[in-house]
Amino acid sequence: MIYTLCFILFVIGLYGVVCKKNIVKIILGFLIMEYSINLFLILLGWRKQGFVPVVENLAGVENLVAQSVDPLPQAMVLISIILGLGILSLMVSIAIRLYQRYGTFDITEMNKLKN
């Protein structure tokens, strides 16, 4: 159920990327896709009544294995968030330069390549 909602969010982002013609909207579509995948990864690792994966007392390490949430998706998401920031800054700078060249954010008006 919850995973399905994540997937709906992903498809909404996909719709924004494929169908919108404003460059900023396309960028927002990519952001939505990124959020949905990140959330999906974290939710995959969740355990009912799960702990944060931090060793609090040394005696309870075996306890941690049975009750902690999965730490590996968290590491993946941490990396993918920073990656998203790098891509976003590049995308936005290309969008700003395109605006300077064409005077619009409309992607259908940028068709010099076709000629």
Binding site: V17, I94, L98, R101, K112, L113
Partner: peptide, 14 residues
């Protein structure tokens, strides 16, 4: 960074 370069770059990126 000419208009064609940027257009191709954005298409490639997207």
């Amino acid at each position: 960074c000419s208009s064609r370069n940027l257009e191709a770059s954005f298409k490639y990126l997207a």
